[in-house]
Each structure stands twice: as structure tokens, then as C-alpha cells.
């Protein structure tokens, strides 16, 4: 069992098994969470991970900058350790950005098209 602390809900703690996605585990215990596609494709359910580790390999919605900023797609992510999250749109301060004013670097794109920093440095 892992302890999931919701920092922006008075540090409420939930215990999860880690066998199901966090969205399902937390909603079944009464936590009200936004969600949409339920397969990791649409970021409606994104939350910010403050501490801990999750497995969200099957998500396809987040770009690498969003992942580096701590965002987790709860509908597919499973807890690997105790975790602390901020949830809901209050946690979305860095999730959305104007793509023209604040463009992504090649390594910050989604993982299927990102060019890793090492690769950029290697190129002539």
C-alpha cells in the first residue's frame, strides 16, 4: 500500500494498492477528480506530483516539459511509492502555455518526436 497525500485538499491522505490507475483508486475512495478520455490521451485529469514516483508509461498526452514540471495523467498512472499531489485546475499553472510566446525546445516535445539533448549535442 502507498500513501497518497493531496496537498491542496488539506493534505488528505488516501491509501492505494498501486494495481489500478490512481484516478480509479482515488475516485472510489470519494475524491472528486476531473477526467475525460480515461486512456491517457487528453490531460483533463492531469495533476502535479510534488513528491514520489509513478508509472505512467502508457500516457500519450504530456510533452516532456509537462513531465519535467511534474505533471501526471492520473487515469493511467499507478503509484510506485508514497506520493504527494496537487490536483485539479489549481495545479495546472504550468500545464498550459501559449505555444507561440513560449515554444518548446526539441527535447521538450512529446516523447515520440522529442530529440534528446545528447543527440542535439552530437550533431555537427
Amino acid at each position: 500500500m502507498n500513501k497518497i497525500t493531496i496537498a491542496n485538499r488539506n493534505n488528505t491522505i488516501f491509501e492505494v494498492k498501486g494495481t489500478k490507475p490512481l484516478l480509479l483508486e482515488l475516485r472510489s475512495q470519494g475524491l472528486d477528480l476531473p477526467y475525460g478520455c480515461q486512456y491517457g490521451g487528453c490531460i483533463t485529469c492531469a495533476a502535479k506530483l510534488i513528491h514520489g514516483e509513478v508509472d505512467q508509461r502508457s500516457q500519450v498526452a504530456l510533452n516532456n516539459r509537462q513531465i519535467n514540471d511534474g505533471y501526471v495523467v492520473l487515469c493511467v498512472a499507478r503509484a510506485k511509492t508514497d506520493c504527494t499531489f496537487e490536483i485539479g485546475v489549481e495545479s495546472h499553472d504550468k500545464l498550459y502555455r501559449n505555444p507561440f510566446i513560449d515554444p518548446l525546445s526539441p527535447h521538450e516535445l512529446k516523447s515520440n518526436i522529442a530529440i534528446l539533448k545528447d543527440k542535439i549535442n552530437e550533431s555537427p
Binding site: 475525460g36 507561440f100 515554444p103 512529446k110
Partner: peptide, 18 residues
């Protein structure tokens, strides 16, 4: 693709033919 437009718009993905 839904997985491209649903999370939001990344301008770079236009250049990557997404």
C-alpha cells in the same frame, strides 16, 4: 489525432507533420 490535439496545441507538432 486525438492524442495530438486533445492535450492542447504545440506549434512544433505542425512541423513534425502531426
Amino acid at each position: 489525432a486525438p492524442n495530438t490535439f486533445m492535450p492542447g496545441f504545440d506549434l512544433e507538432e505542425v512541423g513534425h507533420l502531426k
